[in-house]
């Protein structure tokens, strides 16, 4: 009998603070599986945000820098520019990336920074107790939209991948989800493509992962997965919104 599935080495062997059924744990594992397969953990620098995943510095086995809220792409830019041979990635939530950090996200894309952005979209600010995020769906109830998000007053959710795909410096903008095993496999492939892009110096790769927040959604972990499938995916269609490598192959 051989072990066919176990914790990736790049993921520290510790229990996490994430709530039961939270999607962060799955995405952490996928990122670390990719880092294992590429054998780059010794040359990797992770940049973690402010939010539920701030304490990922205890989980990612590589060197980690904790960035101020929203500024991870800028911190990653600084780290990558002076260490071009290192693998640098940010791991950010939707409040961090799509609200306070929008400028840093867009400009690391326009500059084509050779970094990977793992963007977790769970439609809420998890750490602070479930407030509305830029990705909160119309009508969705949160701490700060107690009567459901009213787009007349609280505006519309932002589709990051579509926005980023318009920037020339972006090599990959792909949205995936972790609500089912096939989607998890797809997510891993996208993450691998993103890190390959970085190693091949193709510019910025952003992988948006539709994920869950059972605690703040007030749903069970399995019901949360259904929410991703039934409510989030229709508003945030999965797919590749930009892929320079594929475009170039097609052009050949």
């Amino acid at each position: 009998m051989a072990v066919v599935f176990d914790r990736p080495n790049s993921l520290e062997d510790v229990s996490t603070h994430f709530c039961p059924g939270c999607g962060h744990g799955i995405v952490h594992r996928l990122v670390c599986e990719v880092l294992d397969e590429m054998g780059v953990i010794g040359d990797t620098i992770a940049v973690v945000p402010v939010g539920c995943s701030v304490m990922s510095y205890n989980y990612f086995g590589c060197d980690v820098i904790q960035a101020p809220h929203g500024r991870a792409p800028a911190v990653a830019t600084g780290a990558k520019r002076v260490n071009p041979d290192k693998v640098v990635f940010t791991y950010q939530g939707d409040g961090d990336l799509a609200a306070i950090g929008t400028a840093e996200t867009v400009h690391s894309g326009t500059r084509g920074e050779n970094i990977v952005i793992i963007f977790i979209n769970n439609t809420t600010y998890g750490m602070t107790g479930g407030q509305m995020a830029p990705t909160t769906l119309p009508g969705q109830v949160t701490q700060t939209t107690p009567f459901g998000r009213n787009t007349d007053t609280a505006g519309f959710p932002i589709r990051i991948c579509e926005m980023m795909s318009t920037l020339s410096g972006v090599a990959l903008a792909q949205r995936v989800a972790i609500d089912s095993v096939p989607h998890i496999r797809e997510a891993k492939k996208a993450i691998r493509k993103a890190f390959d892009n970085q190693v091949n110096k193709r510019g910025l790769s952003i992988v948006e992962v539709l994920s869950t927040c059972p605690t703040n959604w007030g749903l069970s972990p399995t019901a949360s997965m259904d929410f991703v499938r039934d409510k989030m995916i229709p508003y945030y269609p999965l797919g590749v919104y930009k892929d320079k490598t594929a475009d170039e192959e097609a052009a050949k």
Partner: peptide, 16 residues
């Protein structure tokens, strides 16, 4: 391995 792939806490090890 589908159970292990869905597990957010790497709590499942699979042998074959």
């Amino acid at each position: 391995m589908m159970c292990a792939m869905m597990c957010p806490d790497c709590a499942i090890k699979i042998e074959k």
